[in-house]
Structures are given as C-alpha cells and as structure tokens.
Simulated scan of single mutants.
Amino acid sequence: MGLTGKLIAQLEFEAGGDVFHEFFRHNPHQLSDACVGKVHACELVEGEFGKVGCVVIFRYSHDDGKQQSAKMVLDSIDEEKQALVVKVLEGDVMEFYKTFTITVHVETKDEIDHVTWTLEYEMLHEDVPHPISWLAYYIDITVDVETHHLAKN
C-alpha cells in the first residue's frame, strides 16, 4: 500500500460561504471562541493574518483531549474559489506524517453553500493510520463555526 493519500469531506454551511471563508482567512485567532474545547489558541508568528506566507501556531485538542500544537503556513489563497491552502510545518501531527496539507474551499450548488475540506498527506511509514480522525475533526470545527455564527445573528 502507498504512503500518500487524499481525504475529502463536504458539508452544507448555512451561515454563508463568505462568512466561512473570511473567518478562516482573516480571523483564525477567533476559532477558540467558536470551537470551545477543540481550538485553544492561534498565535501569529510571522506575517499578517489572511496573507499568503503568514505563519501561525495553533494549540488544539484532538482525539485524546490532550493539548497539542501545530505550526502552519498559509500557502495559497484563491479568492474566486474561496479556497485556502495551509501546510503544516511542525507539530504533533508531523510525528506521523512527512507532509500534511489542508485545503478548504467554499462552493455554491443550487444556492446552497458547501465547505469542502481536502487533506493531502504522506505517512512516515505503513503503520501510520490514514488521518480520518482529522477529517472528522475539521467537520466538527465547521459545524462549531456555523453554530457560532448562526447564534450571533
């Protein structure tokens, strides 16, 4: 079996695709307000939020509830597709994966906005699990962000 893979999940986002894209692009430091218990902090290390090349450190809990961290860079932005590509540079997830790239984009189908998460990765060895729990984590974050924004309005 190969060591590389891609996982994709798509779900409706009632709060509006523009809201989702702008929130993740410009305000990732507010994720801790929307995703209580999952995201604890987002610290800007280099650059400016929402600009290609900005580097952040996320502190989060995943699976076992233990606090972990990840240093990430905003690799690219596609405004037309409302897409962000983020690469993990360092952190707990890199104990299992040689590369870990997260793409999130918004698309509208029949006037309904959908958020699509794509995880592309290369495992360090064949005993490493595919990051299905990470895909579930991002789905949960999407639901939390939607709930947070719908409650505000």
Rank of each mutant, 00 (worst) to 15 (best):
A41Y: 03
G47E: 08
F58Y: 15
S61Q: 09
S69L: 12
G65A: 12
S69C: 10
V39S: 02
V45E: 15
H62D: 11
I57A: 01
Q67M: 14
A41P: 00
D63R: 09
L44W: 01
H62Y: 08
V55L: 04
C42P: 02
K51R: 12
V45L: 15
S61H: 02
V56S: 04
H62R: 09
G65P: 03
K71C: 07
I57V: 13
A70W: 00
F58W: 10
Y60V: 05
Q67Y: 04
L44V: 08
F58M: 04
A41H: 05
G50W: 06
F49P: 10
L44C: 13
Q67A: 14
R59N: 15
C42S: 13
K38V: 13
E46W: 01
E48D: 03
G53M: 06
G53S: 13
S69A: 11
G50Y: 07
V55W: 03
Q68W: 01
V56A: 03
A41G: 06
D64A: 07
K66E: 15
G65E: 02
H62A: 14
G65F: 06
V45R: 14
D64H: 08
Q67L: 12
K66A: 14
G65M: 07
V55K: 13
Q68P: 00
S69H: 14
D64M: 05
H40T: 10
G53F: 08
G50A: 13
L44H: 01
E48I: 13
D64V: 10
E48H: 12
G50P: 04
C42K: 02
V39C: 12
E43H: 12
C54D: 07
Q67S: 15
E48P: 00
V45F: 00
Q67P: 07
E43F: 03
G50F: 10
M72S: 12
M72G: 01
S69D: 00
K51I: 08
G65D: 05
G50T: 06
K71Y: 05
D63T: 11
Q68H: 14
C54T: 05
G47D: 05
D63H: 10
V56Y: 00
D63A: 14
G50L: 06
E46N: 07
D63P: 00
K66S: 14
F49A: 09
F49N: 06
S69W: 07
G47N: 07
M72N: 12
K51D: 04
S69Q: 15
S61F: 01
C54Y: 13
L44K: 05
V52D: 06
V39A: 03
R59W: 07
V45W: 01
Q67R: 01
K51A: 11
Y60N: 05
I57G: 00
Y60I: 02
K66V: 15
Q68T: 04
E46K: 09
K66F: 10
L44F: 04
V39E: 02
L44A: 12
S69E: 07
E48C: 06
V56T: 14
Q68R: 15
K71P: 01
F49T: 10
G53C: 11
Y60S: 09
D64L: 13
H62W: 11
S61G: 04
D64E: 07
K38Y: 12
C42R: 00
S61D: 01
V52L: 10
G50H: 10
G53V: 11
C54W: 04
M72W: 01
F58N: 06
E43P: 00
H62T: 08
G50N: 04
H40Q: 08
E48K: 13
